[in-house]
Design a binder for these strands. Sequence first.
DNA 1: CGGAAATGGTTCCACAAGGGATTGACTAGG
DNA 2: CCTAGTCAATCCCTTGTGGAACCATTTCCG
Lengths: 177, 177
Amino acid sequence: MEPSIASPRVAEPEVASPQRRLDAFTHARLWKNPCGFAARFNYLALRYNQPLYGWVEERFGLSRPEFVILYSLGITDGVTASEIASSTAFPKNTLSRAVGVLAKRGVVRRGADATDRRAQPLHLTPAGQDLLAEAMPRFVALEEEMLEPLSLIEREQLSMLMAKVVLGMFHAGDKGE
Amino acid sequence: MEPSIASPRVAEPEVASPQRRLDAFTHARLWKNPCGFAARFNYLALRYNQPLYGWVEERFGLSRPEFVILYSLGITDGVTASEIASSTAFPKNTLSRAVGVLAKRGVVRRGADATDRRAQPLHLTPAGQDLLAEAMPRFVALEEEMLEPLSLIEREQLSMLMAKVVLGMFHAGDKGE
DNA sequence: CGGAAATGGTTCCACAAGGGATTGACTAGG
DNA sequence: CCTAGTCAATCCCTTGTGGAACCATTTCCG
């Protein structure tokens, strides 16, 4: 039962000079791990979300699920709370609450679906668009910073490989399970 | 300010036939996103952790931070709570509580550091090792399943590229910030 | 049609999470 | 050798989270 991803050569030099025990442990978590791939994307997710949502919290006073709603609307305007819930795996009551907060702030507006009176398609207000416009560059910038060690070609490769994995999960999960 | 990762060709066919609105939205979140790379690893992290920690919860009655401690000890025995905290970004008090629970269950033992009586190096008990031994295959298997769409060569490539990104973050974060 | 099952959204409540202060142990400086 | 400052671990308390029950509307099916 070998690790499905071999520890790559690029990692080895680091092992030689661990500055502290902590570095050594973090290093072990990332490289000496039967689930190396999982450890790595979890690490990336952590190091990406932690600072960004921390900043969103202190800059706008918005919690993570609240901001996720804005972000979702930025991608697909008119999406409903349930859809965001299903897609992001936040529980729907959490999102319901969040929508309430956002509506009270005037950054989101609850619309009405013509064909289904239960559904509430959500829309960004101009204020919401402004807020999102201020926040997005940070998100883009940190991603850019993360990818900085890679050349353009490598980014393309990485993108393509991740795409394959994600699509696999997407199909397996949304339909199969 | 274009997306730093272009939407790869492999994704396009899917757009043509979205079975439901939800699929369409999830798809947009993954591919029509200025932070495509972030969206993808966040998606993978979600789809990986959700089922596994759900299973751990119902199988062993262990919360995520509790299991993370066991997992950490599996990788590096004798690591302390603080080190796990720093490395995984779980708050120390959460881990302290978790260690308490695990100790009470008899799966973890609080040792004593010879040179520093403040520190409590943690160790797996035989029961803890058994528990971990039962759980690990699930984690390995799901990772394997995720990587299944990739050939061995592609896995190597992905591993190498992720390694570059992670190492960049590792250095930037632990020392720079 | 009409009742049963399903679905979008909200409300209630128990509980765990994590920020902040506290204790106890080590280390450096007067 | 005592004091100030740091660090590991724990405790307390507020808050957000998310499971479950709950309405309103819609869809399914006899």
